[in-house]
Amino acid sequence: MSSLPPYASTGQRVWHYSYLAICAAIFFFLIFPIIVILPLSFNAENFFTFTPAMLALDPEGYSLKHYYDFFTNPDWQQALKNSVMIAPVATILATSFGTLAAIGLSQSHVPYKPAIMAVLISPMIVPLIISAAGMYFFYSRIGLQGTYWGVVMAHAALGTPFVIITVTATLVGFDRSLVRAAANLGANPVTTFFKIQMPLIVPGVVSGALFAFITSFDEVVVVLFLGSAAQKTLPWQMFTGLREQISPTILAVASLMVAISIVLLTILELLRRRSERLRGLSPG
């Protein structure tokens, strides 16, 4: 499909190029909304569209005022601070519990494995609005609703399935004879874990942690119900901003978040390559 044979008929040529054009259009659909907010976030006016000055590439039409607003407005700064306080703690909880459980699940004899797996994966499957509703009812009963730890624990629970899945995937390719060799050479289980197993599964753990982090960092439904004003996170502030007083500062925040996504995506890709190289799955 990638290239046409020299003997292709006109009809085939037309079809081939129109197919490529369709694909280009779909890629455009996928990427355009994300690209378009970058220039718009430098708008000098409080508009959500390109002003004539911007189209004329007039420097007057561009400014950093929305970024300035983000970094000086106390609402946004508080939201950023809350996000930075909640997401890493939720990530640490999810990653440490999740990695241990994934190692447990990869052992050869695990009783009730399908049932356990179903329970552990369930936070990923249940629609967020239902998790949010259930947690809201339950956490109100036990007094965790509207508290920092309530939000952190909810986010950690939502992030664990991703850790389990990525770490389990790494462990599938893990050669267990390495552990036996270590034991044979006199290492105790703890040394074996940290010296042999951990370095090899680290890419899986890190990408699981990244997934858990982004789950918490982007999460808005659960925190909307579980949190109080003191736990207002960045996505929550964006949500209210979009619903009530729409200000272009949102576009500046969105652009910064796209930058964060690009960084995360790059780290993940590098990890994936490293892991494949270590396991000898791909030439590089």
């Binding site: 909304p33 982004i214 982007d218 808005v220 576009l251 969105a254 978040m257």
Partner: peptide
């Protein structure tokens, strides 16, 4: 990988 809210605000 882009935040859901970023994409929704873009639309």
């Amino acid at each position: 990988w882009t935040s859901l809210l970023v994409r929704t605000s873009a639309w």
